[in-house]
Design a protein around this nucleic acid. Structure first.
Lengths: 214, 214
DNA sequence: CCTGGTTGTTACTTGCGGTAACATCAGTCT
DNA sequence: AGACTGATGTTACCGCAAGTAACAACCAGG
């Protein structure tokens, strides 16, 4: 049996792959998501074809790269969802975890939201809005799952949970993106304002005097 | 004085520009945002350099192209915000307007959210998350403005309005994007679920029996 | 007639993603 | 030992897209 050797080879290739991913990571974090395959190969001390052997094409590399960061971020969000004493605490902790992540490593964040899709990416024509980063989708689905399993939402709970999951994630994302680029308020304030929004303060607020009303 | 002639030239070039934009529009709607400058030029019956003379570079063309659609969409959203009888009606009408737009013209939607940024796009390095489409930002700012001028939110109303504007827009966007690609529910249901979320039903829902609580 | 500006062209450069063909070295099978 | 396998690595190339000269033609006004 040659599994002994096969195993050795296997782990060796995987170690190599990991090294390549780390090199790619450095380059992407330094040069942004538009980093060329040549640049990444150079950083790893090799040449292009090797990258292609390991990852197929650019989007393959980027997917592998994205998954590591995505997994890490999702784990921290899940942890935050299990912390705190009441629901508001948990929601605020999760928002904090997300915002802290994008604040401390904006390059990673930018990369994750912008997977730099392959130019010739399969079917053409009416394919709807399939552009979005898979991170948003995964976060939305994960949150939906948590909501569905922990909250009692009556008959349509499945649909509701998914809509809310994606909606809340989108809210967090867009607000975070805007906040990151302008920093008009502190993180604490941002979190608190977003939680207020989720707690229905928009519906409860009074119309301004003399306005047509909202 | 040659202003007469200059004016004539001026309007002529602008008419030409408009024609070029319309050709570009057709191509982008047919081939997606990755349409090449060559293809666009061919559709317009001319060659590349003319496009470059009019729009500088690809991102210039795309910005011009995006602005037309963005303006149209924003106008329809503003109209929706002024319709209806109570606040919930108005919010639902706005959600409907947005979702109807992306539903009936997904290619336009995809293009707007994905401006296909120029490869060498200016400053490098730590530039935070400046990736996002300008449409989201404009919608967020517009909504913030409406909220601030119509709602009485106490002392921090400016901050609150902006956070909410971007947050709500992000919620609408992410939920819409997900919905467009999976179509798990009807548009009416989606709108109603999202409005429920904004109306604080997440905070009000009860914990499921036996769950750790959310 | 000639000069200046606009419209258009062809032909080029540069840089990217991706691939083919070839060389090499390590361990395995007989 | 020597042939076989399979991974690592190379150079050199293809095709294509963005962007840029450099040149040709037309059409005013002096």
């Amino acid at each position: 049996m040659d599994t002994g050797q096969r195993q050795g080879q296997r782990t060796a290739t995987e170690r190599r792959r990991k090294e390549l991913l780390e090199a790619a990571d450095r380059v992407v974090l330094r040069d942004g998501p538009e980093a060329s395959m040549n640049a990444i190969a150079a950083e790893a001390g090799i040449t292009k074809p090797i990258l292609y052997r390991h990852f197929g094409d650019k989007s393959g590399l980027y997917r592998a790269l994205a998954q590591r960061h995505t997994d890490a971020l999702l784990a921290s969000l899940r942890a935050a969802l299990d912390s705190g004493n009441d629901r508001r605490d948990r929601v605020e902790a999760t928002l904090h975890a997300y915002l802290a992540a994008i604040e401390t490593r904006p390059q990673v964040y930018r990369f994750l939201m912008h997977p730099a899709e392959a130019p010739g990416d399969g079917e053409k024509g009416f394919d709807g809005g399939r552009h979005s980063s898979s991170l948003l989708r995964r976060m939305g689905e994960d949150l939906a799952e948590v909501i569905a399993e922990r909250l009692d939402l009556g008959p349509q709970s499945q649909e509701l949970a998914r809509v809310w999951g994606h909606g809340i994630v989108g809210m967090m994302h867009a607000a975070g993106d805007w906040w990151l680029s302008e920093r008009p308020v502190s993180r604490d304030q941002l979190v608190s304002h977003l939680a207020d929004l989720l707690w229905g303060r928009l519906a409860a607020a009074g119309d301004r005097a003399g306005s047509p009303g909202l």
